[in-house]
Nucleic acid binder design. Structure first.
Lengths: 205, 205
DNA sequence: CGATGACGTTAACGATGACTAACATTCGAG
DNA sequence: CTCGAATGTTAGTCATCGTTAACGTCATCG
């Protein structure tokens, strides 16, 4: 989180840390966008948060919207990749579901800012990339739906999709209840609630 | 509706044509804020959506932030009032819980834009009102926690609070899954999922 | 009838903020 | 040592946007 950005102390001797500026900027931007929204955060502030100032951003991204696009693309493709990996390496749908839950919960707990931005700021991504991100998100949902459909073949896919959106809402609520519960207790709580919600959705008549 | 609207004091002839521009503007603003965020929507566009243009907004609100503040204050006080009414008029905690679920689900389904803005844009409300809105939100959550604590006295309050945030996330996911399911099917689905999630949270381990 | 006040308009003003230009500095080749 | 990326910096530019000013209209009321 809030690491020491005391870097540029003397303007005479810059450039030592050798750290990846790109990644730093993406991380700071995620945190700030999550707090005040894409248009609520000036570039100046993003770069200031990592110790460089202003137009340095254009050395790493072609613009503010490109920064957001890359951020969302990265998140959605990582989620999707994890889901595919999990689904293909599990012996059966039951284990797949468990592993999928683990993926999403881990992501929600460890990257709350990214998760928040991911489902709020798609509307601010310019059209070339928007479609691509949407596609990845859809594929991610479909991984879940496929697994659930194996477990409950009689449940209509539309219902499974709607239920999954609700479950994502449940799991992604973590950022809003930060600090409510001891860190270690959050994960099992989310897991048991999500599991119960899913079971209820597919079973209820 | 918290402030003193002049002219309502004179009982002589309050029968103005009273087109509710105020309400129209609030509604349009909610829809637009939900889609692109507070800072993503110019005043021009809000007013344009209701047929007037530009600075006409200042005939009804003291500024853009005041508009947002009133919107959030209205939502949070309405929710809180409904919760209090429900809790005091139900014969027991079990019925209270059912009624609370009904309140939240109805609101989420009928006012998706308001719900969305309500839990995204608090960070853009200036400090005088921010505290007040937070307070109302907290009181709303406490209504739920009180009811749940009656039903499950052994469950720590912190866990109940965390579980409730997750349930709100589940119920407020409606805007994201708009159109996924036939209108009439959404309500019972959300209800059964939320109920199962709550039961799992308070019973597990 | 005039005065008043609610409500709207267009034309500015001023701040902010995204982006560009021009100009250093460091460092790893060659 | 020199060249040229890579990575910063500061000082603009230009569009956008919140807000105010000045002005018009029309219904109501004394």
């Amino acid at each position: 989180m809030g690491d020491v950005t005391s870097a540029s102390a003397t303007p005479s001797t810059p450039a030592r840390p050798r750290r990846n500026r790109r990644a730093e900027i993406l991380e700071a931007a995620a945190r700030l966008f999550a707090a005040r929204g894409f248009h609520g955060v000036p570039i100046e502030e993003i770069c200031g948060a990592v110790g460089v100032s202003g137009p340095a951003l254009y050395r790493h991204f072609s613009g503010k919207e490109a920064l957001l696009a890359e951020m969302l693309l990265d998140v959605s493709s990582r989620l999707r990749e994890s889901a595919v990996a999990v689904a293909t390496s599990s012996p059966g749908p039951e284990q797949s579901l468990d592993a999928l839950l683990d993926v999403q919960i881990t992501f929600a707990i460890e990257q709350p800012a990214l998760i928040t931005v991911h489902d709020r700021e798609l509307g601010n991504v310019p059209e070339p990339h928007r479609r691509q991100i949407r596609r990845l998100q859809r594929l991610y949902v479909e991984e879940w739906v496929t697994v659930l459909a194996e477990l409950h073949p009689t449940c209509p896919a539309a219902r499974l999709r709607a239920a999954m959106h609700a479950v994502f809402g449940l799991l992604n609520s973590t950022p809003h209840s930060a600090g409510e519960l001891a860190g270690g207790d959050m994960r099992p709580l989310l897991r048991v609630m999500a599991r119960a919600a899913i079971d209820a959705a597919v079973n209820a008549r």
